[in-house]
């Protein structure tokens, strides 16, 4: 089962002829993702990587009936590309692009909510269901199929954790990178609920960081609704207040957004938190 995507999910790549879009489309195809179309305005009728290219999302969706799309488009043009995807009827929209203006993201988010579209990102690595499909840029070779669901605000840190789990024989059901921006699509709670309902997932790992209140909201949900064991890690324990740590959303304002405070709140909700990413496999093993 897994969540959000499987081997049957048909995917359209917006920006398929761009450098990043093309490179990662190839990597997705190699992994087994069913990419059925690409969109680049002005290049309709061409082909790349054996995939037909369309001028617009409307044409691509009409022709392929795909309901998922992924955006590899420069931040200046992401707003329009996302609006186009939602209006064309896509149901799962993933935005990899970094540096999208916050106002644009807030508008995309609202449009997605109004149209019942699941939005992942922006500024995220995407998602993967090992041995089935991936949308985005998570390296497939570090993943293995299993029963740990991962949801994370980070990219490379997630790879670190996935690899640690795989090496220790703990495969994954699905991994979702939510993205590092202050306003974004789905958050921890949506993913926790999906993992709770997914029969393949037995354990859930959530990787948070400083800034925002997503981890606190997740802790509340875990107390009330999540029956599966949840494990956590929070990055940014050494981050000073008021400074943005790479991700636009990773900034401590006052006391509530600190790593220490978040770890305390997670622990209070019965979530075992690791002090280093390397400790997560043993935390899970202790629970087996």
């Amino acid at each position: 089962m897994a969540i959000l995507i499987d081997e049957t999910t048909k995917v359209i790549v917006q920006g398929i002829t761009g450098k990043q879009g093309n490179f990662h489309s190839k990597s997705m195809i190699d992994y087994g993702t069913k990419i059925v179309a690409g969109v680049t305005p002005g290049k309709g009728g061409q082909e790349t990587l054996g995939i037909p290219v369309f001028d617009s999302m409307k044409e691509a969706v009409n022709d392929t009936q795909a309901l998922a799309s992924v955006i590899f488009i420069p931040s200046k043009f992401t707003y329009s590309a996302a609006m186009e995807a939602i209006e064309a009827g896509v149901q799962l929209l993933t935005i990899i692009t970094e540096g999208v203006p916050v106002k644009d993201t807030a508008r995309i988010r609202q449009k997605a909510i109004d149209n019942n579209v699941i939005l992942v990102g922006p500024n995220c690595p995407g998602l993967i269901t090992p041995e089935a499909s991936k949308i985005g840029i998570i390296p497939g070779e570090i993943c293995s199929k299993g029963n740990v669901g991962i949801v994370s605000r980070s990219g490379t840190l997630t790879y670190e954790i996935i690899q640690n789990l795989s090496i220790n024989g703990l495969g994954q059901s699905s991994c979702v990178g939510l993205g590092g921006d202050p306003i974004k699509g789905i958050g921890f709670n949506e993913c926790l609920m999906m993992f709770e309902q997914d029969p393949q997932t037995k354990y859930i790992v959530m990787v948070g960081e400083i800034g925002g209140t997503g981890e606190q909201e997740a802790a509340n949900l875990v107390k009330k609704e999540i029956t599966k064991p949840v494990f956590g890690f929070i990055a940014g324990q050494t981050a000073p207040p008021g400074k943005q740590m790479g991700h636009a959303g990773a900034i401590v304002h006052g006391k509530s957004g600190t790593a220490k405070e978040k770890m305390r709140i997670l622990a209070e909700a019965g979530i075992a938190t690791a002090e280093t990413p390397g400790q997560i496999p043993s935390l899970i093993a202790n629970n087996l």
């Binding site: 990219g155 990055a235 324990q237 050494t238």
Partner: peptide, 21 residues
Amino acid sequence: AGGAGLSMATCDLLEFFGSSP
């Protein structure tokens, strides 16, 4: 480091081992 999350985790790990970033 490459990536914001990994960079933060790297800072944290140095402190965990008794040094500082």
